[in-house]
Simulated scan of single mutants.
Amino acid sequence: MPSADASTDARTDITTAPTAEDSEDSEDTLELRLPAEFVARYTQTGETGESADDLLDRIGDWGPSRTPAGSFHLVPVQVERDLPLIGRWINDPTVATFWELAGTECVTEAHLRSQLDGDGRSVPCLGLLEGTPMSYWEVYRADLDPLARHYPARPHDTGVHLLLGGVADRGRGLGSILLRAVADLVLDNRPSCARVVAEPDLRNTPSVSAFLSAGFRFAAEVDLPVKRAALMVRDRGLRDVL
């Protein structure tokens, strides 16, 4: 799973990021199976072809938010439109260190489609700042993810992974601004969600600091299959004081 803020240090991409190992180890990939009746509830479609319900409350309808850096908008990925850009970001040497998904566009496409063709528990998105794509996000149901095996998950816990795409957007605190914005978007648009969580590598001090600056608190150390992580939590009840 990804960690936190490349924006605070060129060596630390905001990477609470899935890795190549994740796709090989069911402990750290989106391999949990939902009960058939639960899946059926979320796969019924109407005449529009859209889901009757949504595990993440229709991210595409959330709309933009104002941040100190400008208007920010999460837009669900469209592979045909976004693959070249995301592939280029994934293959940046700094990013590749943490996401471990470097390779041809086929590698990137497989990673995206594993979410887009899944049951909706993880949604890959582009982050647009003032209309310009500049970051890649994964918003996911942490309570339905293998991460839930490693901490006391609560229903509707929502996780975030972030990759800042351009070198110019790193190292100037932008990651913290956007993490706060996305956490607020989750809490504003997912009324059943009481907490936003993340699991940066515990050794990635700038990453953990970025989450703290974004209003997350350090909750625990957790041993994941590929790293020892800092469990970071943004609580709905504390959002106005942190």
Rank of each mutant, 00 (worst) to 15 (best):
V160I: 15
V75P: 12
T97S: 06
I90A: 13
R239W: 01
D117R: 10
D188L: 01
A69Y: 03
Q78H: 12
T15V: 08
V208L: 08
E105Y: 12
E50I: 00
A194W: 10
A10W: 09
S207W: 05
L83Q: 10
G159Y: 06
A110I: 07
R58D: 15
A220N: 14
L202S: 14
V77M: 02
F218D: 12
Q78L: 06
D143P: 01
D25W: 08
L101M: 14
N91L: 07
I90M: 15
P84H: 08
L185K: 10
P155W: 11
Y151K: 02
E80M: 04
L179S: 05
R217Y: 13
T94H: 03
L178D: 07
G171D: 12
L163W: 00
I177Y: 00
H156N: 12
F211S: 09
L126N: 11
A96M: 08
L242G: 05
P2A: 10
H111P: 00
L179G: 01
D143F: 06
R81S: 11
E47I: 15
T19L: 11
L116G: 05
L126M: 15
R66W: 04
V95A: 14
L185S: 11
D22V: 01
E80Y: 05
R195F: 09
L101P: 00
L56S: 10
R141T: 01
P93K: 07
G49N: 13
D9V: 04
D145C: 00
P146C: 09
D235K: 00
P35V: 13
R66E: 10
Q115T: 06
D57I: 04
D184K: 00
P93N: 08
